[in-house]
Design a protein around this nucleic acid. Sequence first.
DNA 1: AATAGCACTCTCGCCGTTTGAGTGCTAAAA
DNA 2: TTTTAGCACTCAAACGGCGAGAGTGCTATT
Lengths: 367, 367
Amino acid sequence: MSHDRRMLVLRAVVENYIHTQEPVGSSAVTKNFPLHVSSATIRNDMAALEEEGYLVQPHTSAGRVPTEKGYRFFVDRLVRIVPLSAAQQRGIETFFTHSVSLEDTLRRAARLLAQITGQVAIVASPSIVKSHLRRFEMVSLSMNTYLLVIISDSGRVEQRTIATSMPPKPDDVDRLIAVVNTQNEGQPISLLARKLKDIAQSDEFSAMRGFIEIVVKAVADMHDEERSDSMYMSGTALLARGNGAPIASIGPLLDALEEQVVIMRLMGSLSRSANSQGVGVAIGSETHTQGLLNASVVSSGYGQVSGMEKDAPPRTDDADDPDRSENTAPLAFVGSIGPTHMNYPTTIAAVKAVAEYLSAFINRQDS
Amino acid sequence: MSHDRRMLVLRAVVENYIHTQEPVGSSAVTKNFPLHVSSATIRNDMAALEEEGYLVQPHTSAGRVPTEKGYRFFVDRLVRIVPLSAAQQRGIETFFTHSVSLEDTLRRAARLLAQITGQVAIVASPSIVKSHLRRFEMVSLSMNTYLLVIISDSGRVEQRTIATSMPPKPDDVDRLIAVVNTQNEGQPISLLARKLKDIAQSDEFSAMRGFIEIVVKAVADMHDEERSDSMYMSGTALLARGNGAPIASIGPLLDALEEQVVIMRLMGSLSRSANSQGVGVAIGSETHTQGLLNASVVSSGYGQVSGMEKDAPPRTDDADDPDRSENTAPLAFVGSIGPTHMNYPTTIAAVKAVAEYLSAFINRQDS
DNA sequence: AATAGCACTCTCGCCGTTTGAGTGCTAAAA
DNA sequence: TTTTAGCACTCAAACGGCGAGAGTGCTATT
């Protein structure tokens, strides 16, 4: 893959295919792209590109279609960064001025991203385990049940109902809450369970040791359960409409979307190994997920914890962008899933923009 | 519509059509249903049923398909109540043992219902306006922003971020919280805004009158916003698969689903005017909703406030079920949306079952 | 190395024919 | 009066052949 023009041809084919959704022939390339060569020349190049595995033709005497390899090369080396349209920009701007709570914001961010990309959008809630405690609260629901509420500094509110067979005295509960708050405010929530254990050991709370054990269990549970719990998905309906052609192919995709745990893991690792733009792209089989074979995933972290140096290796090394400020451990991520022939430039730009706005929103809460 | 057999024929046609999704002919009826008459007889009855508007044929020399009127008669007079399958029962049972919080429970209830019915499922969160206050809390996020948290006795946790240009003193805030809690615990949340206004007038809090105004505004906002905010929808993806034939027809349906406000109002009124089973059904144009012309909505209230007498007139009067205990103002509702040719018996049974379990769950919290 | 020209190959859409499920009607049987 | 058997009729859907056209690979030329 040396010749400059071949790369331009590849780009032309991919862009055209993304646009029309139909196999693109040599004449279409000459017509829509200013390469200033004849269709015969393009044919030669396309034959070469097919030889090298970047293109295939569905059948003889049809145009060419990009392969996974073709898409990969395209996103790595050929994408032209498109600015979002004015309307989209405005949409995002006005959108973020109306947010009333973190949950509401994330939910609407998912819907917004789905709308811009015309694809499934997923927004994960900032990991509560990675954030710091702002307030710990317990409310009695009935004699034997308590509602446990944990508020993090990213504005996330987590709740758990817990039941106990040996109800503690209300006064004791209030004392416990006070102690936990004074000891842990501003501390990482990941340490909370451990701290609670220590408290249980102290003489002061010896009477309610059993109860605290249950609380500890509930807090520890959050580590495991937050995975599937705390994500907002939108735009699954859009999959159905769109072109309408490949209904058969979206069946498995839908199944995959039900497997929220898998998606979470995939997008999480993807946003960690992001490219220079801070956005990670997995194409088709690169997702290593059954059912996403005809789909691609674009994802980015948000809510970076500032103060750490970046550790994720960039996937490419050219086209370095100066404004990639901090590529550090993100609190959560946002992403979009669509067909392998999705509009990568737009999707990448949209995901990036939403991620940046979400980061800003989180930090605003934070400060 | 007198003859007994005609009704049986109508039932047969509807059930068969629901099952096969294809126009049903006279021979299909004789084969699959034990009516012990010849196909010619069925033909006569079907012609009569068509005359009366219960059936239509897509074209000459095709089988018959139920009309809206046919479905209506079917659900009103002909449905045989089917018990849920053992697997479904088990699904619901085990499902409810794993619930950790109200939000989590509702979200999973929606997913469960979608899975059972194979359709879109919607679960509305118990109206916070109709519930009573359990705890009022305000947490400082930054100098100028506070997180307002309201916990209702149905276990719902509502949050709002509020910003003020004149930050109050932390001590004052704590005092305010204490006063609000002691004055309002157990009181209807609908009165909360008014109570807060009164407090603002008192001399004790004269210094933070402006701040309280903002809080009042936020609380009042909940009345309006909870509509779209507090519902969980699942299974939109299922619409796409299914048969795969009528892609065109689901387009408007998806649009309608985006209009969450409309759906909320529709299901709300529907669950209020429910039949003897406590389940309301709106078929096709009965939904009075553009885009739901080929869809039906099945919905039921849950979380009944006990102590009131029923006031909703039952839609039919036969087949009275002894265990319809309280048909009183529900806190919220649950429902399912699918094509007009949905499986009504199963859908109705599933919606009813989930509603009952949700009611039980709420009351458990409550007690 | 690029281009023009050309024969070749498939897919797709079009159209007439066939097939078969299902009907309505009539006349006989119950 | 109701049910049934028989039969002619209708029409959507499946089938198969055909021509058009898009697009290719190859070869000869610039």
